[in-house]
Design a protein around this nucleic acid. Sequence first.
RNA 1: CACGCCCG
Length: 248
Amino acid sequence: VVSCNAMIKLYAQQGDLNRARNIFESTPQTNAVSWSSMITAFAANGYLEQAKSTFDRMPRKNEVSWNAMLQAFAEVEQLEASLAVLQRMPLHNVVSLTSMISGYAQEGDVLGAKAVFDTIPEPDGIAYNALVGAYMKAGVLQEARELFQIMPEKNVVSWNAVITGYAENGEALQAKELFFEMTKRNVQSWNAMICVSQQLGRPDEAIAILELMPLHNAVSWNAAVEALASNGETAAAEKLFQKMPQKE
RNA sequence: CACGCCCG
């Protein structure tokens, strides 16, 4: 069963749902992990109906499967459906409520996000990060920053949420400032700086960052290409695009 | 081996 579940996950990551489903259906003794994996697999590939019917057919639903279903609705902004799941599930936890927060965040509903957050007895770092993200998404920069300042433990995601939030709201300099204050940065932090360079009209800086950063991914390359292209460096953008690795 | 937070 365990190896079947691992294969479901693998095929789902490749978007090969037919194979994932075949494995699932030929798994001898499906367990809760098999079912949840399949629900998530469908949802992650945009098959919400399939996710739902799998969930409905699941014999002994547990907390993870309820949460997976809730998240499946929340991530496509079907908040009414998410709420219905939340109300129907036997018991919800911080994971369920954090999914709701990110659902409200996507809608730009800060009040909804905050209201859910306030019902969490012991919010963890992820819940805080989700609320910071909700504030940033809605452009409520001051609230976001204040929450970031007072939150108990900040990880790299917390920092990135604020940095990219500033960047997306046109506060390129604030984003830069925080980036320099960060001690542990990941690819996403660096990618945010490429976007900042683009905003500041500094394609040269974008390239410098791309070369300087300790690790890239496909987003880094695309962001750098866009930084060039959007700042009138069409030829250089084209050249960089061709230099881009096939797989990263 | 399954669920929630950040970059195009």
